[in-house]
Amino acid sequence: MTRLLVLIMGALATVMFALIVLVIMPRTMLADIKAPEQLKPLSALEARGRQIYISNGCIYCHTQQVRDSNFTADVSKGLGNRPSVPADYVNDAPHLLGTMRTGPDLFNVGSRLPDQNWQLVHLYQPRALVPWSIMPAFPFLFEHKAKAGPNEKTLNLPPAYAPREGVVVVSKDAEAIVAYLLSLKHAYPAPGNDLTKEIAND
């Protein structure tokens, strides 16, 4: 090659082509998808919990997607009663699909593990409930105090993991993230305007 113009125009053309095919075109197509009726927008507390999920990097070990049941075992492993579809995610910004299953998928964790106390203790110290767990403990989401104040919720920990003195108080952050986890339920049937199916059946 001897011409800079060929180089720069060629380089721009290839990347713009990909941008149109994979970003701009889908954007117009996906714009019509509506939230299913049963998918509730997050409450303020749950939205705060989602932010804590992001800032503490739960995404690097947990996915939030049930893959296509034609070629994966996600549904038969009980991660959900159906694969997840674009409509399940219309309220998500940013998406939290994830790429690692060092820990289990959380797309339906609210239905699978609905006990708030279990979730709080698990967050404080996963090994208190699941001895083989390699999930990090998140003690910094809680407060250590000599005595709980009025209206403060304390954790009921097994003796091996309880602090020697004082109590562990549930902070607003811990409450929020557990509220978010419990909101993760997608048991409703896949909505009709499901683009994945439409195109697959064409």
């Binding site: 994979l22 970003v23 998808i33 995610y89 940013p94």
Partner: peptide
């Protein structure tokens, strides 16, 4: 947002 956000992320 939604799955578009995932598409752009991996693009």
């Amino acid at each position: 947002k939604g799955v578009e956000s995932a598409a752009v992320n991996w693009f």
